[in-house]
Design a protein around this nucleic acid. Sequence first.
DNA 1: TTGTAGGCGTTATCAC
DNA 2: GTGATAACGCCTACAA
Lengths: 344, 344
Amino acid sequence: MKQKACTIKDIAQTLNINISTVSRALNNSNSIKEETRKLVHDLALKLNYRPNAMASSLRKGKGNTIGLIVPNINRHFFSNLIYGVETVLGASGYNILICQSTDKLEKEKQAISTLINARVDGIIISITSETEQSGHIENAIENGIVLVQVDRVLHNLNTHKIVNNNFNASYNATKHLLAQGYKKIAHLSGPQTINIYKERQAGYSKALLESDLNDKSPIIYENTILAEKSYELVMKLHAEKNLPDAFFSASDFGALGALQALQKLKIKVPETIGIVGYANEPFTELTTPSISSIDQYSIEIGKEAAQIMLNELKNKIDKKMVKQISIEPLLIIRDSSKKMMNDE
Amino acid sequence: MKQKACTIKDIAQTLNINISTVSRALNNSNSIKEETRKLVHDLALKLNYRPNAMASSLRKGKGNTIGLIVPNINRHFFSNLIYGVETVLGASGYNILICQSTDKLEKEKQAISTLINARVDGIIISITSETEQSGHIENAIENGIVLVQVDRVLHNLNTHKIVNNNFNASYNATKHLLAQGYKKIAHLSGPQTINIYKERQAGYSKALLESDLNDKSPIIYENTILAEKSYELVMKLHAEKNLPDAFFSASDFGALGALQALQKLKIKVPETIGIVGYANEPFTELTTPSISSIDQYSIEIGKEAAQIMLNELKNKIDKKMVKQISIEPLLIIRDSSKKMMNDE
DNA sequence: TTGTAGGCGTTATCAC
DNA sequence: GTGATAACGCCTACAA
């Protein structure tokens, strides 16, 4: 089945010309006679010649490949991110090596090591929740690899970054709940080691502080971004007669769990308790009531990250000019937080 | 910033030993003195030596990389598939080059070409809906690349395949609707050029034929697997007073659109009209009523495909032994099709 | 316009 | 055990 692969040497021999002439012909060098160019191309086609990208890359010292490291490939946000990256990078002829850290620092280190060894031109990364030191990432930079951090970033690492404005989005979401008349707004939060959750919490707190509530102190429940966790929490708060009248969750899954618990308890949403989630997961518009949420433009972020990468790879000028782009997420108001509008 | 990368040659020179000794030391060859092995390893660490995978691959003639081609990276099924593939292949030290065909034949051809040039060891592919000829894929095989087809497959192409038993699943789903007492069951179908939709339609038809309905003829609406399309269809059928009393959709999105239209029309689901979807999209359990659907074990399929690939790559024996694995999807009965149970 | 030759960083095959 | 050397397939000065 497997015929020994045809190389430019084979073509050269059959045509009785030099191997370098073949190389030039195939690369459409301008210093080549049209006649020989055609001769070579025709034979290459006939012999089903396949340029060996490994050899070419080795010779040229770069492989036209970029690496992509995400915590989880199948999470909605990240699969959209990958989609965006592939769309832009693929169109520009780059190959994409994909790695999954499963949110473990050890695997992230390993992935970076692999990508360095593969001599990728660049790495687009969204770090794990365990990543606090940047040594392994700097290692890549020292090896001449262009780095772009996305969404979950290490702020003290001087690379291109493209992030969501989590602070503003959360601030706006909380202001929205206040405007709807909710008076005791709790925040369902994630690990504070991850910048995005810290920022979301900060935005929430700021909005409360700026409110004219009597009690401006934040009510924060950590580790409640999974549906089961927030479900349990709501049940517990209800038993303790300590329910807030609104939840702003740092994740749609947290919002979902809360909603399901409240429905179980026959507590009306949004009339009695309001809910806003985060990420605009596809399901948020399908629940009853639909869940207000925040869209993160995940595909666009992927495209943007890829575009920055491309620009950096093309013009190696201005090496010190690092881009930090912040995308403003969009608050999408659905039924779960429309207290006022229902009163009308 | 970018120091010139250290090579085994550098190590050899500093240590005043031969380059091949260094190579052996780094590869932990058994014919090497422990002392020199340690010497080399220590210096390698100190110099931050990075083996050049391109060079190694070129020399060895293989690159420990497999290619993955899917129509869309961010579709639930495929992102789970990728997740499964990465989990298994990553753990075995393989790199994954990811390509997206966007369901276009031309891009699929291009992706395969790229992967052949990259000298990948294998390709896992789910073909586009436009793919009817297999020339470009056979091309890969002729180049010694192991092929595994997944989900959307070209049946006449003799490669490993791992598919869902779409026929059985659809047959069972339709039988379930019949058992629930629905008497006029329509099928929302997709392009018949794609094997999976053809098979789903066939399973549906078979179940009808085996029923004791007076009218056993299938009612098939093609091109209704998107929510908007099925929504429009239901509206149209209602206007024509021609609604069936159940829909079995080849896609959850088709089911969703139908559900939304029926709710708009204040027609009760499942009491008046029953619905079953396909794919067990995350949202199906979150709608009200929740939508009965068919789980495809997408992650497991990815893992299985990767496992077959691994086995094939390890023991090159039994080259003619092609595996065709069929996974039995699972019918998940939720509220949208529980007519009987509601009557109780 | 074409040929010659050297090398990209490894590994494999000889020897010693 | 180690050393020398020739590849792997391609590209690119330099020379002709």
